[in-house]
Write a protein that binds this DNA or RNA. Structure first.
Length: 505
RNA sequence: UCCUCCUUAGCUCAGUCGGUUAGAGCACCUGACUGUUAAUCAGGGUGUCCUAAGUUCAAGUCUUAGAGGAGGAGCCA
């Protein structure tokens, strides 16, 4: 028994594979079965001339998602996705599938989410899960190579890190408890014991967010390093993102091709230095007061808008031409094809029109930006639009950052935090910074944030007993997957997403 | 919590100014074709128009309320 992944090692050999029929095409005397086995997809051909009558009849019986065991010879064929196909001489049906709900055609989001347990079988979802796995693996690889120890934070916690409103509350042997929204504080404790650590675990946020960027349950990686300052932290983040991007680019070529990811950006990320902007600097760029590569945000976005409008016009023209052609009379097949194409173009226009409507709003919001506040989603899009690679924004007004962020000794109104904004409109994928070491400042901050001091006594101990400079960051795994795969929505980055209104399947 | 949009066949959607019997593609079935890549071609029928109330001679279409969904704001990774 071999796997589709290993077809290239068995050219011209007779082998047996088992899997599921994911699609089937037929022609006189020929059946083309596209088989999937979890490791890949391969075309398997049954020829009536070659096989026993029973074998050909069985091949005809198979339906989409029928499980089968196939025997035959592996033959090189450049036209196939993996480069090989199986010429079948025997078939054993394991279980005939009843009418399968997910066809090879278009489906809506709600339908597919309700069928998520089956949707995962489709090629695109398979590729995304393979990439997710490789991302997880390369994250571990990077930190382990760099001498980090994986050390996990608890999931049940007795206190909120940054206020209680966003947590899922539960009960722990009669006491009020919450599901962890971050392992940050525990990470600091573990770094004081082990030097350099990283946590890798689930995180829970109870915000009723319904957006393409939010999950209620997601996986977060939080490294924490003793004797690190903000600059060292930023160096590490950049090195880390470059490493993971490069690993995926090199080891997931087939998967990236299936999801049609434009990979030219990956080499730029590996080669170019990530811009590091202070918050003040980022605000100037955002408001169009400073040029990047000779252009302001205003000029760039106005050019984008003109391009979008030109695209809409071009698509409308294409639709009109096709409609004229249909009026004039064409064969039924051509008419269907054109009608389908028109529908696709109309959807494209809808997307572009949303964009055309958004751009002026983004510009206005950028111009009106108030210094001292946090960037909104559109502000992040505008800033990252100016660069090809992730952008690091550091030295934030301390009021908008968490209580544990270190104040800048030179400019006390600033906190030494850093946000990494991914390009292509994906926004914040990493948030981190250097941690406050001054015991009195921390106490002051905990009071300011109205957090219960008793719950933080253990945390303050870290400053009482051999306090050292330290820093770390948090990476949202699903946001990383979404960006690497350039997915329109975070719900496709995790096998069974949990979000507001979605608890099943 | 707030704003905008959506709900019509198994799926994706169209349905004009409120007007006759509710439309298409796909899926499915039958047939044709010896190499298909979402194969193609011919034929075959499918409806609680989300629910309730209202306006009207007449409601898929208009009004109100409700349910479900999508996108966004806030918040964040």
């Amino acid at each position: 028994m071999i796997q589709i992944r290993d077809f290239n090692k068995h050219e011209n050999e007779n082998v047996t594979v088992q899997g599921w029929v994911t699609n089937k095409r037929s022609s006189k005397g020929l059946e083309f079965i596209i088989l999937r086995d979890g490791t890949g997809f391969a075309q398997c051909v049954v020829s009536e001339e070659v096989v026993a009558t029973k074998v050909f009849a069985d091949a005809k019986l198979t339906t989409q998602e029928t499980s089968v065991k196939l025997s035959g010879k592996i033959v090189k064929d450049e036209r196939q996705i993996g480069g090989y196909e199986l010429q079948i001489n025997d078939i054993e049906i394991i279980s005939i599938a009843e009418s399968y709900p997910i066809s090879n055609k278009e489906h809506g989001v709600e339908f597919l989410m309700d069928k998520r347990h089956l949707w995962l079988r489709s090629k695109r979802q398979w590729a995304i899960m393979q990439i997710r796995n490789k991302i997880i693996f390369s994250i571990h690889k990077f930190f382990q190579q760099e001498g980090f120890v994986q050390a996990d934070a608890p999931i049940f916690t007795g206190n909120a890190v940054e206020g209680t409103t966003t947590l899922f509350s539960t009960e722990f042997y009669g006491e009020d408890a919450y599901l962890s929204q971050s392992g940050q504080l525990y990470g600091e404790a573990m770094a004081m014991a082990l030097g350099k650590i990283y946590t890798f675990g689930p995180t829970f946020r109870a915000e009723k967010s319904k957006t393409r960027r939010h999950l209620s349950e997601f996986w977060m990686i939080e490294p924490e390093m003793a004797f690190y300052d903000l600059d060292m932290d930023m160096d590490l983040i950049e090195q880390f993102i470059k490493f993971v991007t490069n690993e995926i680019n090199e080891t997931c070529k087939a998967e990236l091709e299936i999801i049609e990811r434009d990979t030219t950006i990956f080499s730029k990320i590996v080669e170019q230095k990530f811009p590091r902007l202070t918050y003040d600097h980022a605000v100037k760029i955002l408001k169009g007061e400073e040029k990047v590569n000779g252009k302001t945000t205003i000029e760039t976005l106005e050019a984008d808008l003109a391009e979008v409008k030109a695209n809409i016009e071009a698509l409308n023209k294409e639709i009109a031409e096709k409609e004229v052609a249909i009026e004039a009379g064409v064969s039924k097949g051509q008419r269907n094809f054109m009608q389908n194409k028109i529908d696709t173009l109309k959807n494209d226009i809808k997307d572009l029109e949303v964009k055309a409507k958004n751009i002026p709003e983004w510009l206005q919001s950028a111009k009106d930006f108030t210094y001292g506040t946090d960037f909104g989603g559109s502000d992040e899009t505008v800033i990252t639009r100016m660069f090809d690679v992730p952008v690091m924004v550091y030295n934030w007004p301390h009021e908008i950052k968490a209580f544990y962020m270190k104040r800048d000794a030179g400019s006390p109104h600033l906190a030494k935090g850093v946000d990494v904004l991914a390009p292509e409109g994906y926004g914040e994928i990493v948030g981190g910074g250097e941690r406050e070491t001054d015991l009195n400042l921390l106490i002051e901050k905990i009071n300011e944030h109205k957090l219960p001091m008793s719950a933080f006594e253990w945390y303050l101990d870290l400053r009482r007993f051999g306090s050292v400079p330290h820093a770390g960051f948090g990476l949202g795994l699903e946001r990383m997957v979404a960006w690497i795969c350039k997915l329109p929505h975070i719900r496709e980055t995790i096998p069974f997403p949990r979000m507001y209104g979605r608890l099943l399947p």
